[in-house]
Design a protein around this nucleic acid. Structure first.
Length: 445
RNA sequence: GGCCUCAUCGUCUAACGGCUAGGACAGCGCCUUUUCAAGGCGUUAAUCGGGGUUCGAUUCCCCGUGAGGUCACCA
């Protein structure tokens, strides 16, 4: 069988996480079987469609790397829908009915209703097995506002038929839509695709993702600095497992290689951002020096430009520290805005009382800083090792905290920071000595 | 409420009907060159309940309970 799958978002809001996961599964399945993956824009709801939403679909699909083979705009196929609708009416599979409008206006309108044979529909779901529905309760349901104005269920069936979709992989909220779509399909004498209903993505409170209550737009995650590789890996493992033992890290092409509808789960999965962050960090760590530097420096400069005088060279030296500390790009801006990086560029203003180590006092701190300065003046190899060598025996003898805390605090002006050796290297010998001097002056006041 | 679907640590999940139910995230503890971060090591924690079938059920069947989905002239 020549596999053809599709993702059919409606451009009525930003492309969201749930749609992305459905797209991913469809993409993986099509790729796995050497088939085609089709993007269909379901834009029949003229009231709620926006161009912005449509653009967002393209942008995020591209970002996530779901290359589609064909694009299909539903509204451009109205003529075909009309033709099919007419045929259904002509063959008495459907009929036009005059009734009072549901909008409460009291006016009379015509709608097209399907003549429901009222039988039991059973379909074999690729992830859940056989599912049966008694369709009599559906009655003669409405399939179009008029012969020229099809509704969702009709358009879906007509378009899937036209595009020769072989596998309909979608969220489980569509399970109960399936029997009415099959009814339409049978009236249209279209072949039945294989259905596969994948579990929903739930929010931490077990509720369905809602655009109002939760951050669900892919765009938001992108802007906060998540990597597409991490998003894909995380999303793929939400409701599916590769059957590769304890392995969790998969690239997109590895996901394709392992993907199998039979291993898709049946129950909903909660979207856990902590785990996403973990994936993201893993992928951040895999980035090349250059790729990391480009993005990190850009983010850092944006956030810092208004706070300190920017020094590109010094920022460069900051990269290893950044890589160690962040889980996503947004962490850089967050840390920078919180003032975490200011002291690399501008001398801090240490508070007298905090210079000594907790178990020490100012007199001792002053003595240690003075000795530290003397020792550092003589360091010829200004590297973490060289600096450490100059201070270590002294620190061991006098107490590490007593010696190293004042130094680290003098250099950073912060209770929390990287270790004093790294800081000293970053600041350079001259600046390091100058900051120690400043701290000594403060202690002498 | 009717119909449909689902049920393993807090979360994501693994386990041809057969080892002490495994891993990851989070948590907790310890270690490491003061603090923070990272890292290393360790650890807490689960088969919804009740009946069957079976030599043996997380796994198969039934009932209950719970959760979710859906019941439009939206998609």
């Amino acid at each position: 069988m020549h596999v053809r799958t599709r993702i059919a978002p409606s451009p009525t809001g930003f492309f969201h996480i749930g749609t992305a996961r459905t797209a991913l599964f469809n993409y993986l399945f099509a790729q796995k079987h050497g088939g085609q993956f089709i993007l269909r824009i379901e834009d029949t709801d003229k009231e709620r469609n926006t161009k912005e939403s449509e653009e967002d679909i393209y942008a995020q699909m591209m970002w996530l790397g779901y290359a589609y083979d064909e694009k299909y705009i539903q509204s451009e196929h109205l003529e075909e829908h009309t033709k099919l609708l007419k045929r259904l009416v002509d063959t008495d599979r459907a009929y036009v009915s005059k009734e009072e409008a549901k909008d409460g206006s009291g006016r009379m309108v015509e709608v097209v209703r399907l003549r429901n044979p009222g039988k039991t529909i059973t379909f074999d779901d690729a992830v859940r097995g056989a599912i049966s529905f008694d369709t009599t309760e559906l009655k003669d349901f409405v399939i179009a506002r008029s012969v020229t104005d099809p509704l969702y269920h009709f358009a879906v069936v007509a378009d899937d038929g036209a595009a020769q979709i072989t596998h309909v992989i979608r969220g489980e909220e569509h399970i109960s839509n399936t029997p009415r779509q099959i009814l339409i399909q049978e009236a249209l004498e279209l072949p039945r695709p294989i259905y596969g209903h994948i579990p929903l993505i739930l929010m931490p409170d077990r509720s369905k993702m809602s655009k109002r209550k939760h951050k669900t737009a892919v765009k938001d995650y992108r802007e906060r600095g998540y990597l597409p590789e991490a998003m894909n890996n995380f999303l793929a493992l939400l409701g599916w497992s590769a059957g590769e033992g304890d392995r969790e890290l998969f690239s997109l092409s590895e996901l394709i290689e392992h993907f199998d509808l039979a291993r898709v789960h049946k129950s909903g999965a909660i979207f856990n951002e902590e785990k996403l962050k973990w994936f993201n960090r893993e992928y951040l760590l895999k980035l090349t020096q250059t790729d990391f530097a480009t993005e990190a420096l850009g983010r850092l400069k944006d956030a810092l430009a208004s706070r300190v005088s920017w020094d590109g060279e010094r920022a460069q030296a900051l990269l290893p520290i950044l890589r160690e500390r962040i889980s996503l790009w947004g962490d850089i801006s967050e840390l920078a805005n919180a003032g975490e990086f200011d002291y690399y560029f501008t001398p801090p203003q240490p508070e007298k009382a905090r210079i000594p180590d907790k178990k020490s006092d100012s007199t001792t701190a002053l003595a240690h800083l003075t000795e530290t300065a003397i020792r550092l003046k003589n360091v010829s190899q200004w590297t973490p090792e060289g600096i450490k060598e100059a201070l270590w025996s002294y620190a061991e003898k006098e107490g590490r905290g007593a010696v190293l805390w004042p130094l680290r605090y003098a250099l950073s002006g912060k209770d929390k920071s990287p270790d004093p050796f790294s800081l000293a290297v970053l600041l350079g010998q001259e600046e390091t000595l100058s900051r120690i001097q400043t701290a000594c002056d403060i202690l002498n006041e």
